[in-house]
Nucleic acid binder design. Sequence first.
DNA 1: GTGTTCGGTGAACAACTGTGCACAAGCTAG
DNA 2: CTAGCTTGTGCACAGTTGTTCACCGAACAC
Lengths: 256, 256
Amino acid sequence: MSVTSRTPRSSDRPRRSSGGDGDRARRASARPADDRAPLVPEPGVPVAGASLTRQERKARTRQALLDATLERLEDQAFGAISLREVARSAGITPTAFYRHFESMEDLGLVLVDESFRALREMLRVRRAAATEPGDEIRAAVATLVEHVHGQRAHFRFIARERSGGTAPLRSAIRQEIRLFSSQLATDLARYPVLRERATADLQMIADLIVAAAVSAVEQLLDVPPGRPDLEDEIRGVAEDQLRLIVLGALQWRSAS
Amino acid sequence: MSVTSRTPRSSDRPRRSSGGDGDRARRASARPADDRAPLVPEPGVPVAGASLTRQERKARTRQALLDATLERLEDQAFGAISLREVARSAGITPTAFYRHFESMEDLGLVLVDESFRALREMLRVRRAAATEPGDEIRAAVATLVEHVHGQRAHFRFIARERSGGTAPLRSAIRQEIRLFSSQLATDLARYPVLRERATADLQMIADLIVAAAVSAVEQLLDVPPGRPDLEDEIRGVAEDQLRLIVLGALQWRSAS
DNA sequence: GTGTTCGGTGAACAACTGTGCACAAGCTAG
DNA sequence: CTAGCTTGTGCACAGTTGTTCACCGAACAC
């Protein structure tokens, strides 16, 4: 009895129980669980020509696991990706997974870290680049769009798990974003026109900017590849929203 | 899962780690998957005194399935909830599930509809209530907070699946929010001070307001029960953000 | 050169998954 | 009153899951 004979065309939907206790199960595929299908340049198998050091090899398969997860993340939510699936995509057996991570949740937290390292890098580049004052908003949005392009998988991971994922992941991401936002608030304090604002007000403004940025990123991630027109539309709206916020901030008087 | 030391050689026979995040002891402890544990007032079994019409009974178990899903959604992502699990919580067999929905995805779309019906209701109430002009922002935020309280499960579902879920659900939710946002834009046009703004600008402003609102709702959903202080903090910031946006909107001149 | 460490394998386990099929019982229409 | 549709059950099946165990071979430390 093959799988294709099923009448309801619901197709194969990612599924998994888990939650508090650890247990999961997944949809049916054609062949009976092959396990390990090397899509990545031979992480587990002895590499042809090279005799790498053990550290290098370990780091390599570890990264292969992370990358495989990010790749799988294109279709499914992180919480719906199985350990076996990741191991399979990375080209190792499920047992070997445990040599690198304690659990999928552990891997997820590492992924959060890796993703935000990219985001911090973005901020660093932004700060370093000297932009003429009048064009700061345009430059900021451009950097954002550019980095979403470059780190698409990581941004997608963050965007999805920020509110969709399990509690530990969610709170880890929220905290990173909060950190990001408060850094932005201190950056805002450097502008002469905003200098006399109360720090709580600056934080409120920074939160609003971040909310707009998050919204823009989410929209960018939904843009199908090869539609630069939609992307420009989003970019333009985001710029206008930031300008409007700045306009409001300049008028703002704390009513405390 | 895996709270404390996971030491690979630890031979805890029953592999239910049961620690994880705040997970209360689940009833599926000992016996192997009982299926069907009536938590809901007897949907499947012949009800004692009442002889309901077939339609009523069907609608009742259908609602039980939807409610069970919402309940399960507190801990897990929608994509991680299994059909069997829902059926179990609703007190019917997995096969009976198919009498009501084609698949979990089907149920999810119904849930989207149900959730947004509540949101629309909120808007309707808001429009009907005559508020004195000066207090409109405060009143709007108050209504939002109130409805998040009342429809917590639905809001959580939307917030999570908005960016976390599978593609069909995600796009369904996004479209509803877009609709909501454009309605807000036309509402904005009714204010005399904003009347001469271009519709694209009004839409941009409405999108910003929605982004701020979404952010506020997400924060509200993360507030642990019994912490009204945090809730007031969020409410206050949201009000200020809206006021700032209004301030900016009044200054706004389209640069087209 | 030799023993150890360690990243890997493969089989096994019990639990769980979605879904098909045959059947039962009651509301409902005739 | 009777026939049938409808909503449920029970069983089965094949496939997948996380995790453990014993083991292996090559890089490593000495």
